[in-house]
């Protein structure tokens, strides 16, 4: 009978013992989480105030960052959006730290992977931002140059350049994030190569006559430029 009771009580005791060992960890996690939320809120408030003071929203409006947000149907102020991003990053970090306080091996691995991934995510965001600005700048420059040169399809050309650069930037971002890098690289090579090939064929085939005329004109001019030989040879 005693053995039978032991059979029942032993697992229960083990569970109780595990819970007793686990409870301080859980408490530590909750404390870390609460402190993390508080710190996140304070940091968000400080960041938003700082950004408001330096007129970040106005700068974003002029630089096209707000336009980018609106295109994605995000209607918060840029400073508040940045505040929210910081807040959620802090919450995720606090959550990760809290979870590592649980001292569970699988969770520890996940947390370390997450922290290893952070620099890549940061680089991807930077590539996206700089790429967006550069794309806008180049597209605008092409538009102005094409309009000044009197091209009828200036806007189309500028939009095509914008599209190409956007594809390039997105490929770089996905590659940086290590999201199926092989597929991204292959897809990008196919798309980009395809576009360039299509352009080459269309210009090549469509411009045969023009190229022929140019070459003929060039060689004709050269022929007329050759000094005449006064002596006639038999």
């Amino acid at each position: 009978m005693t053995d039978f009771l032991d059979l029942i009580l032993e697992p229960l005791q083990e569970v109780f013992h595990a819970i007793r060992q686990f409870l301080p960890n859980l408490l530590a996690m909750l404390v870390i989480l609460i402190i993390g939320i508080l710190v996140a809120r304070v940091l968000r408030a400080i960041l938003v105030r700082f950004l408001t003071a330096i007129k970040f929203d106005s700068w974003s409006d002029r630089m096209g960052v707000t336009t980018l947000m609106r295109k994605s149907d995000l209607w918060a102020k840029p400073s508040l959006a940045l505040g929210a991003i910081l807040y959620w990053i802090m919450i995720i970090i606090a959550l990760a730290m809290g979870m590592s306080a649980l001292k569970i091996q699988a969770v520890d691995n996940l947390v370390s992977q997450f922290f290893m991934y952070l620099p890549r995510a940061f680089s991807a965001i930077m590539i996206l931002l700089v790429g967006y600005m550069l794309t806008g700048f180049v597209s605008r420059a092409v538009l102005i140059a094409a309009v000044n040169s009197g091209y009828h399809y200036a806007k189309l050309l500028a939009e095509a350049i914008r599209l190409l650069l956007t594809v390039l930037v997105l490929a770089m971002v996905l590659e940086q994030l290590q999201v199926a890098p092989g597929i991204v690289l292959a897809a990008f090579s196919i798309i980009f190569g395809g576009i360039v090939l299509a352009l080459a064929i269309s210009f090549g085939v469509g411009g045969i006559d023009a190229a022929k005329r140019m070459i003929e004109r060039e060689t004709g001019e050269k022929r007329t430029e050759e000094p005449k030989d006064d002596v006639e040879h038999i």
């Binding site: 409006d61 002029r62 096209g64 707000t66 336009t67 149907d73």
Partner: peptide, 16 residues
């Protein structure tokens, strides 16, 4: 001139 993307923003707002 002050906000180069304002027309895009307005268009997006109304369209949405």
């Amino acid at each position: 001139s002050a906000i180069p993307g304002i027309l895009d923003m307005l268009k997006k707002a109304v369209d949405m």
